[in-house]
Design a protein around this nucleic acid. Sequence first.
DNA 1: ACGGATAATTCGATGATCGAAATAGTAGAC
DNA 2: GTCTACTATTTCGATCATCGAATTATCCGT
Lengths: 167, 167
Amino acid sequence: MTHDTDGGGPTDRDLSRLLQNLNVESDRYAERFGAKHGLHRTDVNALALIMEAARLGAPMSPSALAKELGLSPSATTALIDRLEALGHVERGRPAGDRRRVALEVPAAAVEANRHLFTPLAMAFSESWTGFTAEERAVVARFLAVSTETMKAVSAEAQDQPRDQRRR
Amino acid sequence: MTHDTDGGGPTDRDLSRLLQNLNVESDRYAERFGAKHGLHRTDVNALALIMEAARLGAPMSPSALAKELGLSPSATTALIDRLEALGHVERGRPAGDRRRVALEVPAAAVEANRHLFTPLAMAFSESWTGFTAEERAVVARFLAVSTETMKAVSAEAQDQPRDQRRR
DNA sequence: ACGGATAATTCGATGATCGAAATAGTAGAC
DNA sequence: GTCTACTATTTCGATCATCGAATTATCCGT
């Protein structure tokens, strides 16, 4: 077991555990809260990504979404079908390349979709008032490097499948 | 658009986005990496919780696990069946109450299970070297309050289902 | 002992996801 | 200009994690 860092700060294990708790709780939130709107965990994540991209003026394609979520193309199609059926997104065929699909958020749905995320966002805002700008910067750096690390390790696992899968 | 906090630190929205990215990547990691060992996202999360509890000498019960993961009892039984079939855990009937099941980790599996988590743990350790004890403390505090916040909001969503579910 | 409560499981059904193949569209070779 | 290779997305059939409801086993208060 590795020792504490120096002045009794949280150990690596402590931080890992906290991240894991956060992740479990996050999944639970998406599951429970999404259910109120007829959405599942993946749908909530997808909708957040789609809205963010649309907001930035660079609407997502199904394949980009699949890559971000780590889903198969077919699962992504089904996912978009669900979201579209509920009116959360629309399939647009962009002018240039008509094979592509641009995932747009109808004006009418923007407001409704926001209701999905604002409760949590507001609760977060409130619970984060105790952090100074410097502390926020530290946290942001931590979250960013941790995400990158997971992405990197995940990619390795993808490349060398030294164990057999079971399916 | 809310303004920055004060000295140009990350906005609430920035932090929310980072958390969301982390969560998506975390799910992906569990999915991909677990697949190498015949496990799914939930199984990986469950195994982590079971191992942690067993390590602390307070082995989990199926119901406790169900509560932590937000799963139904039946899903939890199926989950444990899977883990047991692969030899990751064992069902023990504790002396006192024979209705209960204690989820134990066979000595032979402890080492193997550790292989599931150490790669990520080591990568994390390495990527966190740039953080001082004080900074780690800040991060730990942030992760803890954020998890708590989600738990609280999630509980609210559970209580007042003002929208209809679709099933 | 008895009856209600609690822990875990079984059963049948639903639906998100997968892999493989089909469809639609683009771009380059000749 | 047509043909061919390639890319983006969708359709189809199958699998399996999860759910809700009912069942079994065990405990505890009276």
